[in-house]
């Protein structure tokens, strides 16, 4: 299998590239931006496994990100816990709340699920914003510590933080890769394709949906916690609906339902919008239509586009098959009608 080895070589090159980047770009500002986009990528991976692979668009994802961030912030600042203990607890708390919400939210489907989670997200934001005595309300939470030392390793410098976050990102990607390429991942994909069919081949859809929902909130929480200790200050804004729209943009541009999509989309969009600082307030003038156009013309984003090109090229090489491609989601009603006519 030469394609496989080619792929893994490319992967190793990429990882080494990410490792040496701090030595190439000596600019602290860009290192900061890159680290930040790694954090967002982790959150987007969480969204991807749910929306991309299981077909459930959760608009409460930013809320869970905020829960993770606030959990870490409160546990370190107010409770004075050790950073690493707080980090683990933050992930557990977020997943726990995710489990409770998932139990109810997943009884709904499609549009109802999207609207339900949108409302849940909004309630999370409002609670953070209004629960002044706990969260500090609009003033936010300041003085969140950076990760504490592990033995001789300290995480005070920008470079060490970069490596720490890179480590978490790589771990996330490995976990995602293993899930997607496993029976469990196939189960999720089967649910996305057709929940009805999935059930008739013996899949407990509720159990699997709950698993993936909790998993997605876990990564949202992890990303939120890392964000809190990286930026050292958090406000209720990080749970506002605009954040979920940002995350969606990253995911869509990179490629929803693809493994490389989240990191590609996030790094691309975050760095582009940083280069166009003057656009900051108006970035949605570009991102909004981009989101819409991508979903119409390239529903699987940049990564999907590239793999389609590759496939076409490959097909041409071994002589194109005559069979025309039917869209994945062709209108089943129409198809059925044709069949009846033929019958």
């Amino acid at each position: 299998m030469p394609a496989m080895t080619k792929k893994s070589i490319a992967l190793i090159v990429l990882i080494i590239g990410a490792m040496v980047i701090p030595f190439i770009i000596q600019n602290e500002y860009w290192l900061h931006i890159l680290t930040l986009s790694f954090i967002w990528s982790i959150a987007v991976y969480g969204l991807n496994i749910l929306a991309g692979y299981t077909g459930y668009l959760s608009l409460a994802h930013a809320g869970f990100f905020a829960i993770g961030a606030y959990a870490l912030g409160l546990l370190t600042v107010k409770a004075g816990l050790n950073y690493w203990v707080a980090l683990i607890l933050a992930c557990i708390i977020t997943s726990g709340i995710g489990l409770l919400i998932g139990l109810v939210a997943l009884r709904t489907r499609e549009h109802f699920f999207a609207i339900y989670t949108l409302c849940v997200g909004y309630v999370i934001y409002l609670v953070i914003d209004k629960w002044d005595s706990l969260t500090g309300g609009v003033r936010g939470l300041i003085g969140i510590p950076a990760p504490s030392n592990i033995g001789p390793i300290s995480f005070q410098s920008a470079i060490s933080q970069y490596y720490l976050i890179l480590f978490f990102l790589l771990a996330t990607v490995v976990v995602m890769y293993r899930i997607v390429h496993s029976l469990t991942g196939r189960t999720f994909i089967a649910i996305r394709n057709s929940e009805e069919l999935a059930q008739t081949i013996g899949i407990s859809t509720m159990k699997n949906k709950l698993t993936v929902f909790v998993l997605s909130t876990f990564f949202a929480g992890l990303a939120g916690a890392l964000y809190a200790s990286f930026i050292r200050f958090i406000g209720p804004d990080i749970g506002y609906t605009t954040i979920i729209f940002d995350l969606l943009t990253y995911l869509l541009v990179g490629g929803i339902g693809t493994l490389a999509g989240p990191v590609v989309g996030t790094i691309l969009i975050v760095s582009v919008s940083q280069s166009l600082q003057f656009l900051q307030d108006y970035r949605m003038l570009i991102f909004g239509p981009m989101l819409t156009l991508i979903i119409i013309f390239y529903p699987r984003g940049i990564v999907g586009m590239v793999s389609e090109w590759k496939m076409k090229w490959f097909n041409k090489k071994k002589k194109a098959p005559a069979e025309t491609w039917k869209s994945t989601y062709s209108d089943s009603e129409d198809v059925r009608e044709d069949k009846v006519k033929e019958g």
Binding site: L183, T184, R186, T187, A190, I201, G202, I203, L215
Partner: peptide
């Protein structure tokens, strides 16, 4: 995935 119902491995196994 059709044979998934006859298996037991979970997320952690994966």
């Amino acid at each position: 995935v059709g044979h998934r119902l006859r298996t037991k491995s979970n997320l952690l196994d994966a």
